[in-house]
């Protein structure tokens, strides 16, 4: 049976969930729009560039593709706005504006937003987030990324969420109430750290080959793994102008593994913070989110390491790019109207 075609219903309120990330930023809106963009903003270097590009500002992949003609900015270091540089604040402002536009908001709609930011940075960066977002929304709440991911998944009790992004790995323990600062941890050895590590190893192994960090990042996104991999990982890299196949299997594995010890250490520490009676439950409820959760074998590697101290189960969110944005949207939707109204009255 065909679905009933509903007539477009004009709502005066739009709820949006935004995930501000170092590498990618995403928006999920209550009108059904879900979009993401690489967290790059670029401005044409001169009027010639602007004429060629036909735009005054470019975002995401388009900005990356035209980076030679642009002043390129990746403003969200460690998942939060770099402080002190007006250029970066302007870039984040533009990025937010772009995300809001991608959500196709109708003129006149009131926008209620929940923004996810890295856990430990939540407090110190609220002001910067507010400055960047306040121009475009009517009301704003800021929560930690892993909390948003947990909320979206409906797992709010006896669980640990590990959100592995480009700039940070965020840990958050969920015990049936709003996580406090003590319930959250942030590591800076995340995706970017893997990229740098891999880049250094490949430079050492293939000193004559011509590649950059951006290429290495793409290699990682396509081939990352921990543990065993099927066959060799071979990528094409130019050497003296000629495209050559390079074996990066071992380096890829070692680079990805480099973040594991710290992740395990913090996971164990957070498990130990639970009431001993519930630690067994928590061990069965470890959730990986963020782009880094897509490293093949990461969940199994964590399980294998933690199993020494008892059974555990690690699961990966289905859609890491949108997990936090969707969770933030769920929060925005569930937030009672009187709470929003209360804010508007102030």
């Amino acid at each position: 049976m065909a679905k009933k075609k509903s007539s477009p219903k004009r709502s005066s309120k739009l709820r949006v969930g935004i995930d501000l990330g170092t590498s990618r930023s995403a928006i999920s809106a209550s009108n059904g729009k879900r979009k993401f963009v690489e967290s790059y903003v670029g401005w044409p270097k001169d009027f010639i560039s602007e004429k060629v590009l036909g735009k005054s500002v470019l975002f995401g992949q388009e900005a990356l593709d035209n980076r030679l003609s642009l002043e390129l900015c990746r403003p969200l270091e460690h998942g939060v706005i770099k402080e002190g540089t007006s250029r970066d604040e302007e870039a984040v402002n533009q990025l937010i504006s772009h995300l809001i536009e991608l959500a196709e908001i109708q003129e006149g709609q009131e926008i209620y937003s929940v923004v996810g930011v890295p856990a430990e940075s939540l407090r110190a960066n609220k002001l910067a987030i507010k400055r960047a977002v306040e121009d475009y929304v009517d009301s704003l709440m800021v929560v930690s990324e892993p909390f948003a991911a947990a909320y979206g998944r409906g797992v709010l009790n006896n669980a640990i969420v590990i959100d592995i992004g480009a700039g940070t790995v965020d840990f958050c323990i969920m015990h049936g109430s709003m996580p406090t600062d003590d319930d959250q941890r942030t590591l800076v050895t995340a995706g970017d750290y893997i990229d740098e590590h891999l880049y250094a190893m490949l430079k050492e192994k293939y000193p004559e080959s011509d590649f950059n960090l951006n290429m290495v990042r793409k290699f990682k996104e396509e081939h990352s793994y921990i543990g065993k991999t099927k066959g060799k990982i071979e990528v094409e890299i130019p050497v003296g102008g000629k495209i050559m196949v390079h074996d990066i299997t071992e380096e890829m594995g070692r680079a990805c593994e480099s973040i594991l010890p710290a992740v395990l250490e913090h996971t164990m520490e957070l498990i130990a913070r639970f009431d001993p009676e519930y630690q067994g439950l928590v061990r069965q409820n470890i959730i990986l989110a963020g782009g880094g959760s897509q490293i093949k074998g990461l969940d199994k590697a964590i399980e294998a390491s933690l199993k020494e101290d008892g059974l555990c189960k690690v699961s990966v969110v289905d859609d890491p790019i949108f997990a936090s944005a969707d969770g933030a949207l769920a929060l925005a939707k569930d937030m009672p109207d009187d709470y929003w109204q209360n804010m508007l009255d102030e």
Partner: peptide
Amino acid sequence: FKQANKRQILKDVHDENLWLVGKRKSR
């Protein structure tokens, strides 16, 4: 999770964020 918890969590998020919206700009 229990509904009671959920309600409390939403309240906590709301309380934590009051400062952000006290100066809402005109639309």
